[in-house]
Amino acid sequence: MTKLEVKGVSFLYGKGTPFEKLALDNVSVSFEKGKITGLIGHTGSGKSTLVSLLNGLYKPEEGEVLLDGVNIWQKPSEISKIRFRVGLVMQYPEYQLFDETVRRDIEFGPRNQGLSDEEINERVNEAIRFTGITEDLLEKSPFELSGGQKRRVAIAGILAMRPEVLVLDEPAAGLDPRGRREILGGLSDYVKESGVTLILVSHSMEDMAYYCDNVVVMSDSKVYKAGTVDEIFSSATELEAIGLDVPVISKIASRLKACGIELEGKLYTVGGVRDAIINYLGGNAK
């Protein structure tokens, strides 16, 4: 079922100046409810712009953004309500921390929603559970934390608003492998438990293949291709044509295939290829 849909959207930066730049060109894409959709593409392909249109930070020049089938710009004065329903974590979100303690910073969003103290407290506890923030950090100043911890606090600040759609722009950029796994794993648990719709922007094909259900590929301000992870990563040549990569394990699988080894299954995750090889060798993977 479609939760959020972008229909024929175009967007210009710096309209009317010599620096005018078309960032989105007639983009149409839909995001399914309760699924994790990955958004990949080059730097400057329009991913971040698309993401900031989803919660109404910018208004599209043309086209519309539909949340549950309703245009989010139907009542421009109530756009801030949309921002509670579509939670956006921007790139390098740690710069947005400002309050005295971690707890108060996470509470900022829910307080703006006008919730009761009890409700806020419950939501903060839920948010720190999924982002892996320990209780002892709650009373510290956010400026004392390490980069990775700050990132978690920033994500928790959005989770605590309990949005119906959660959009994260490169949530794991610049983190070590363990930090990546913990943050992305926590988010994926959150999706399973709450049924939220998750949109994930990333450069890492491995992460995409591992965590996402669907993938949207953007190139040159347009949607290049959209489909399930299977469909997208099965054709390495197409992705390579626009300068993107496929997961390393997919490359290995296609080399094996080229050698005449018939592999079948999810050939874009390590586990999938392992099972396929075991099956090929006559074993039983399951």
Partner: peptide
């Protein structure tokens, strides 16, 4: 640019 980025981030958290 930075101000705009921060404003957008706080708007996303419902700041008015």
């Amino acid at each position: 640019e930075e101000t705009e980025k921060i404003m957008n981030a706080q708007k996303s958290r419902g700041a008015d």
